[in-house]
Design a protein around this nucleic acid. Structure first.
Length: 283
DNA sequence: TACAATGTTTTAAG
DNA sequence: CCTTAAAACATTGT
């Protein structure tokens, strides 16, 4: 479920345990989640460690740990895939179905839950600097007009939506944000990137990323953290303003917030796509 | 039952 | 080399 803002929401769920020592861990070693890093490696690396900080980059999360039985800190990288989420609960509560591992402190259980198992995890050495080698974040200072023009040159013939979904160029943007950006630009998602004004693509994609953070991450942090059994799509119904395409694109028969025309649906860049054939031109 | 689901990677094909 | 399309992953809900 996670795009930029919900990844940030997920990160915040675990910050409750900052400064606390991991006293144990449980998990199911047999799932696909462990294709990059085994449960045994995870257990050995994190036992006795202290969570000292965290950050996100696009759809990735990085949790930094110090100490532990190895004496060396670790950086735990998580990706939520399509259906992953992070939860926290009191130590008295039992694990939920599809909790692949649970990090335990004296007072909290931090769980990684993902029923489709598309998520992944990596355990890096202490001091791993996640920013090096990763693409420029859309909301960072470096995402300049020159940077945008460079992207445009390298992918001028590709569909706008395809480039927006490419994590090497727009880290954190996912299917709904891509549709939102195309709609706000007033063009069909299949129009080649080369036909756009670089400044417009940059401005609108930054606006949508900022709005997602404001309306979804900042607007839901406490509720998200308290909610048990939070299900994908819940936040969709209650957060961003009604003049966002986001609020309408999910339901069959959803209407364009600008002109009220029923939204079109199809596949663009291999993903289900919603657009308004009246407000979005194909030229 | 069949299909789609907020993601990515791999493989195949042109 | 490039680009695009399709399949694969595993589970749930409509």
């Amino acid at each position: 479920m996670p795009e930029l803002a919900e990844v940030e929401l997920s990160r915040r769920v675990w910050t409750i345990a900052e400064g606390l020592t991991l006293r144990g861990m449980s998990g199911n070693a047999l799932t696909r989640i462990y294709r990059d890093c085994s449960l045994a490696t995870l257990k050995r690396g994190l036992r006795g460690a202290v969570l000292v900080g965290s950050r996100t980059h696009g759809k990735r999360m990085f949790f930094e740990f110090k100490g532990g039985i190895t004496g060396k800190g670790r950086c735990l990288e998580l990706h939520l895939g399509m259906t992953g989420r992070l939860t926290r609960s009191r130590t008295s509560s039992r694990a939920h179905k599809h909790d692949h591992f649970v990090l335990k402190t004296r007072e909290w259980n931090l769980a990684f839950n993902d029923y489709r198992q598309f998520g992944r995890l990596f355990l890096h050495a202490e001091g791993f600097n996640p920013v090096v080698g990763l693409p420029m974040e859309v909301l960072s200072k470096g995402f300049s007009l020159a940077h945008m023009k460079a992207i445009q040159e390298r992918r001028s013939k590709r569909a706008l939506k395809a480039v927006l979904l490419d994590q090497a160029f727009f880290p954190g943007v996912g299917n709904w944000m891509a549709d939102e950006i195309c709609w706000r630009l007033g063009y069909h998602p299949a129009v080649p990137l080369g036909q756009f004004e670089a400044a417009s693509v940059r401005r609108v994609s930054r606006m949508v990323c900022r709005g997602a953070m404001k309306h979804i991450a900042d607007g839901n942090t406490e509720q998200y953290q308290e909610e048990v059994g939070f299900s994908p799509g819940n936040y969709v119904k209650r957060t961003p303003p009604a003049d966002w395409l986001f609020r309408h694109r999910w339901k069959a028969g959803g209407a364009c917030p600008k002109c009220s025309r029923v939204l079109d649906r199809g596949v663009v860049a291999t993903r289900t796509t919603a657009w308004c054939s009246s407000c979005q031109v194909s030229r």
